[in-house]
Amino acid sequence: MNFAWLAVFLALAPVLPAVATPGPVTDPEGLRFYSQGNYQAAVQLYRQALRGDPRNADLHYNLGNALFKSGQTGRAISSFQRAFDIRPRDADIRQNLDFALRRAGEELAPTGVPPLLFFTFHLLSERELAALHWLACWLLLVLAGLYLWKESLRPRLLSGTLAAGVLWSAFGAWWLAVRSGVSQQRGVIVATSAEIRSGPGENFNVSFTAPEGRRLQIFSQEGDWLEIGVLKEGIKGWIPAAAIDPI
């Protein structure tokens, strides 16, 4: 069994330097702008910071706050959603996303889904699930390799190998399920009241309107028009691309 731990350590060794890398430095300027009510300046600052660190959940969250305070509910929801995708367990991110969504007539936990189930499903981010899946996969491969290599250790390695297989299957399925939601093209309506038409053009009738901040799924694009589906109501239509902020 010591061989297995040795193998895991050896496998992790190359990534340890990355683990030790500290998080982004606190930005006092953004805090100052935000506290003074200069939300537009804070938005500019956070957007600039995100160009260098696009997977920083804190920056997405702070940008969402500044956008919301400046009256851009749709873009704020978009930012909060990105932060949620990266760090779904963060209580502040959940609260602000839910708060902003309720302004648009939605809730973070969809209607009909028990909140406990929803938040359990979103306990880990897609990245974290991918990592756990790979860890379980590594463990399985190393234990299976040792099982093949060392005949004398086979009786002791059998249960561990099977457990690693179960873990790998579970994390793999979970990861795929979350990934299927995250990898879909999504967007948020940023127009005050978006008109959703039956076809990709002004000559088509307006089928329905949707408020700013409503989350959408993007199916296809036809010129400047996007074919979308409204997640909550489950209805489809076409909307100008400019009216949507893709997530």
Binding site: P14, V15, V19, T21, G30, L31, Y61, N96, A100, W134
Partner: peptide, 24 residues
């Protein structure tokens, strides 16, 4: 109201480890 800005990053070692593994 909205929760306040995140002034200090709070990325746990667990998260950072997993993100590093995912990006391995």
């Amino acid at each position: 109201d909205l929760a306040f800005l995140k002034v200090r990053p709070r990325r746990t070692m667990f998260t950072r480890c997993l993100e590093a593994i995912a990006a391995a």
